[in-house]
Simulated scan of single mutants.
Amino acid sequence: MGGQTSKIHVAGDRKCRPPAFILTAGQAADSPQFIPVLGRARVRGPVGRPRTRPDAVAGDKAYSSRGNRAHLRKRRIKAVIPKKKDQAANRKKSPQGGRPVSHDADLHKERNTVERLINKLKAWRGIATRYDKTFDNYLAGLHLRASMTWLRDPTRTIR
């Protein structure tokens, strides 16, 4: 698994900074990486040490699974993940039924911060084009670029 066949699974805060990410093989699905990425994320408040439990987690339909929702419910984290059409159809057909998935549309609008974060990471040509042939070199570039987003916005000009 090298840079060319790898996939970045990233969590982002509201300021488009990456509190955690995982690099996997390109054929790895998104949903199984949800809990490991969330486990690495730390939420910084105005005072005190970083928390391991955010108030809410927003994601796209790829992360809508029973396991992910159960994990969030167990940790008392609000899930802002829309349901898939096939999940809604299967819920109606199953004998258990189940409760409908709640969805906060206003919080879901802020999911674009992750997309903007990925665009910031890919502003570096080496990350966008995946020229690094080895996993370690590509991961080192990701760590370097992610640390730069925490230090300052690199697209901003200094006056």
Rank of each mutant, 00 (worst) to 15 (best):
P95V: 15
R75I: 01
K61Y: 08
L72E: 10
K92R: 12
V57I: 08
A89C: 08
S64K: 10
I77S: 03
D60I: 09
K83C: 09
A58H: 01
A58C: 04
K74S: 09
D86R: 13
Q87N: 11
P100C: 04
R99Y: 13
R73H: 08
S64T: 06
A79F: 07
G59D: 00
A89K: 10
A79Y: 07
I77C: 04
P100S: 07
G59L: 02
G67W: 04
D86H: 15
K84N: 10
Q87W: 15
K61P: 04
K83E: 12
I77G: 04
K93N: 07
V57W: 00
A58D: 01
K92H: 09
H71M: 02
Q96K: 12
Y63I: 00
A70T: 11
A88Y: 11
H71A: 06
R76I: 07
R69A: 00
P82H: 14
V57T: 00
K83N: 11
I77Q: 07
G98L: 11
G67P: 09
H71K: 00
Q96P: 05
G59R: 03
N90S: 12
K92N: 03
A79R: 05
P95Y: 14
N90R: 15
A70Q: 13
G97Q: 03
D60N: 06
N90V: 09
R75D: 00
K85M: 12
G97Y: 07
G59A: 09
A62V: 03
R66T: 05
K74M: 06
Q87K: 14
Y63F: 09
A79T: 12
D86C: 13
R66Y: 12
L72G: 03
D86S: 15
G98D: 14
D60T: 06
G67L: 01
V80M: 04
G97M: 02
V57S: 00
A79K: 05
N90G: 06
L72Y: 04
H71L: 01
K92A: 11
Q96N: 09
R73Y: 02
N68Y: 03
R66F: 10
G97W: 07
G67C: 06
K83P: 11
D60H: 05
R66C: 02
R66S: 10
R99V: 14
P95S: 12
A62Y: 07
